[in-house]
């Protein structure tokens, strides 16, 4: 199973519609083990839906999702599902910290609730993870509402990496942050992904972020992947969609529905 040929994650022929609105129209995305793929695309193009399908929060209408060669639709028992989920980490767009729990309880949530790690040890590991994303131990006992947006994202990142996932998803990691905080988050992401040696899938419409955290970039438009290549090629992709998006031009093949 764990040979280097099998993609760590693969979406094959994935389709998803809401009502008559087709969001994903046959998307194929293999991601090799240890690589970082960034999916770019405009708002409402189905980037979040793609990630939710990949991580199993949403079922595709058609198509399959493979993790390490295994078709995830065939995972049946709750125990297998929980074990499967343990391979993933995810940083949500709004951090999605639980607002009734303190920061350390948030970071240690998987440890205390799913893995039954004793609280004392879980707290130590949470504080360690917080330190890795540059948050001092003094925030451990605060509630999410007491942190700035940038700090919440960092706590969300700590929660995503604390249990050493094999695949991490980042949903718009820099959206809503000022450029400096955005750069801090980008650096932390690169650092953590490298440290864990994990496979990463990020979605963003922030090109600075895409260049920084991606080995490869793919562009999603109208329910399909219209281009994919090494991050270094993004400025000479020879693809009109990509060029328009990268340069942020109103004119071009991409039509904005109004």
């Amino acid at each position: 199973m764990s040979d280097t040929k099998t993609p760590m994650l693969e979406l094959r022929g994935v389709r998803k519609a809401f009502g008559d609105k087709v969001v994903l129209d046959g998307v194929d995305i293999p991601v090799a083990r240890g690589r970082s793929l960034v999916i770019i695309g405009g708002s409402g193009q189905g980037k979040s839906v793609t990630i939710k399908i990949a991580i199993g929060l949403m079922a595709p209408d058609a198509g399959q999702v493979f993790v390490d060669g295994q078709d995830t639709a065939l995972i049946r028992s709750a125990a297998d599902r929980a074990r499967h989920n343990a391979r993933f980490g995810m940083l949500f767009q709004g951090a999605a910290l639980f607002d009734s729990l303190t920061i350390w309880e948030n970071v240690a949530f998987r440890l205390t609730n799913a893995d039954k790690v004793p609280r004392k040890e879980a707290r130590e590991r949470a504080v360690e993870a917080l330190a890795r994303v540059g948050l001092p131990a003094s925030v451990a006992n605060l509630y999410p509402i007491e942190l700035s947006g940038g700090m919440q994202k960092r706590a969300g990142l700590a929660r995503a990496v604390v249990a050493q996932p094999e695949i991490i998803f980042f949903d718009e990691p820099t959206t809503g942050l000022d450029p400096i905080n955005a750069d801090v988050i980008n650096n932390l992401i690169v650092e953590q992904v490298k440290r864990l040696g994990c496979t990463a899938v990020s979605i963003t419409h922030d090109m600075a972020s895409a260049r920084k955290i991606g080995d490869e970039i793919a562009m999603l438009y109208n329910g399909k992947i219209v281009w994919r290549g090494p991050a270094a090629d993004i400025d000479h992709s020879g693809n009109a969609y990509v060029d328009q998006f990268v340069h942020g031009r109103a004119d071009g093949p991409i039509k904005i529905e109004v």
């Binding site: 989920n85 949500f92 607002d99 609730n113 929660r159």
Partner: peptide, 21 residues
Amino acid sequence: AMRATEQIDALNTLSTDPFRY
């Protein structure tokens, strides 16, 4: 509010069944 802010999705990804929790 937990649904709107993706906290329920977060529960799932943290291997915790929202029906139980």
